[in-house]
Simulated scan of single mutants.
Amino acid sequence: MKPGADTSRKSVKTYVPAYQKDEWQAHAKELEMSQSEFVRTMVQAGRKGFDPDREEPDSPDATPGGNALETRVLELLSDDTYSWDELLDAVSDDIESRLDETLEELQATDRIRYSGRHGGYVVVDDAETASGDDGD
């Protein structure tokens, strides 16, 4: 990763045929990755194939089954000294960003929704969706 690279998370949306999304989800599950992690990793791998000399920022989840937290801690400590609380804040922010992104994706695909009645997020039941009853 280039020094000073912006590591904040941004959402990217695309549309693919349903069969392709199903294939990607199945492959991601086999690799024990989230769908976002899978797509991000495959895009980065593909881009390296187009221009191997191009330096790309590393994705924190670039290694399936790897320890992304370990990688993140080492990246942070390579630049500066951090206390326990500072490290916790730095890695917690990444978790908060990933959770926010995941919740957005799950809501966009109607797999979860926010229910005021239940006081939080709930899984969308197929029967509930089919009947038009949103439970609120």
Rank of each mutant, 00 (worst) to 15 (best):
L69H: 01
N67L: 01
E101Y: 01
S78Q: 08
A108G: 03
N67R: 00
L106A: 14
A127E: 09
I112E: 10
R72S: 03
D93R: 07
I112A: 09
S115R: 00
V124T: 04
S115N: 03
V123Y: 10
D93H: 03
D100K: 09
D126R: 13
S92C: 13
G120Q: 06
D94S: 08
S115P: 03
R113W: 11
D85E: 15
L69F: 03
D94W: 06
G120S: 01
A127N: 02
R117M: 11
V122E: 08
T129G: 07
R111E: 15
A108V: 13
S92Q: 15
Y114V: 02
W84R: 12
Y121N: 00
D125E: 04
V124I: 12
L87T: 09
G116P: 05
D89T: 14
A90S: 05
L74S: 12
L87K: 14
D89A: 12
D89R: 10
W84T: 00
Y82T: 02
A127C: 01
L103P: 11
E75Q: 13
T71P: 04
D126V: 15
E70V: 08
D100R: 01
G116T: 00
W84E: 14
A127F: 10
V91W: 04
E86Q: 11
T81M: 15
L103R: 07
T109G: 12
H118C: 02
L76Y: 13
W84H: 09
E96Y: 13
S97M: 05
D80E: 11
S131L: 02
G120N: 05
E70F: 03
I112H: 12
V73F: 00
